[in-house]
């Protein structure tokens, strides 16, 4: 499978009075792209649009040139799509194998021997080979998340859209999963919504920071980190001139904002870059990059 190119153009989506996305324009190519942002920033809506389960009120979403606003375009996208919903409620009475096999049928993987081989492969990939015949209700939250991931991997999709696949995973499993996604992203387009900004630098090629339904930053993780350079310092007490201060040790505060002369500037982290993108008043309503 070759990676797909995604073009989101002037997309807006509202739910009643809440504007989930507002005039969003993005280009996403192959590789691993992380979508980060506070709760309610529009991450899930954006991913649903990419996964064709949601439609934009305005604007267009094209995947490999296929316009998802028309049925044939959506079908073309679904043929190359692996999708993990944010809160995939699994049929608890089914076994892992039954459920993944059921989705394999929905994905029209045929004939049966091929389908079963693919089911076995995906269950193995997420490390649930020895629990394949257990009922989903008997699995932990993290394992259930991996069941969801297994169904998303079926058919070796060229486009993987995963909404918080790392939720409820222990750090070791999370790293294994990210390694697997990074490997897949060499030949596919992988878009992952996450709250673990710390993982981004190591695994992702691209970051999209969303806030209030608008992209505040789009670019490489290194550039996101650089966004905070000169804007992070340590002090013994909260600095009223900072956008925000938080304890980073029992005795010191980490402050973010326009650093005053003489402030003890520190090397920024990705978290600092992310918070800068969220809180910075620079470029209101538009991306900082």
């Amino acid at each position: 499978m070759a990676p797909v190119a995604i073009e989101v153009k002037d997309v807006s989506r509202t739910f009643g009075p809440h504007r989930a996305l507002e005039d969003v324009s993005l280009l996403i190519g192959g590789g691993l792209t992380a979508v980060v942002g506070p709760n309610g920033s529009g991450k899930t809506t954006l991913l649903r649009l990419l996964a064709t389960t949601e439609r934009a009120d305005r604007g267009s979403v094209r995947v490999s040139g296929h316009d998802t606003s028309n049925p044939s375009g959506r079908l073309a996208v679904r043929r190359v799509l692996g999708y993990l919903t944010q809160s995939e409620s699994l049929p608890l009475r089914m076994t892992v194998h039954q459920y993944v096999d059921y989705v394999a049928v929905l994905k029209e993987i045929e004939p049966r021997p091929t389908r079963l081989a693919e089911v076995a492969r995906c269950i193995e990939t997420v490390g649930l080979g020895d629990r394949a015949h257990d009922r989903i209700r008997d699995l932990s939250g993290g394992m259930r998340r991996r069941v969801g991931l297994a169904q998303a991997l079926l058919g070796d999709p060229a486009l993987l859209v995963l909404d918080e696949p790392d939720a409820a995973l222990d750090p070791e499993t999370r790293r294994l999963m990210l390694a697997e996604l990074a490997t897949r992203s060499r030949d596919a387009t992988v878009v992952v919504a996450t709250h673990h900004t710390g993982d981004i630098g190591e695994w992702c090629d691209r970051v999209i920071v969303l806030s209030s339904g608008r992209p505040r930053f789009v670019g490489a993780p290194g550039r996101l980190r650089e966004l905070a350079r000169g804007r992070v310092w340590r002090s013994d007490e909260p600095d009223p001139t900072a956008w925000h201060c938080w304890r980073d040790s029992p005795r010191t505060w980490r402050c973010l904002g326009p650093a005053a002369p003489g402030a003890a500037e520190v090397e920024p982290t990705l978290d600092d870059g992310y918070l800068t993108a969220i809180w910075s008043p620079d470029g209101p309503g538009g991306p900082l990059s």
């Binding site: 996964a51 999708y83 929905l106 994905k107």
Partner: peptide, 17 residues
């Protein structure tokens, strides 16, 4: 349908389903 959204994201012929 607990897996409604997952189902919608697959290419299955919905009329057949």
């Amino acid at each position: 349908d607990p897996v409604h959204e997952t189902t919608v994201a697959t290419p299955i012929d919905r009329t057949r389903l």
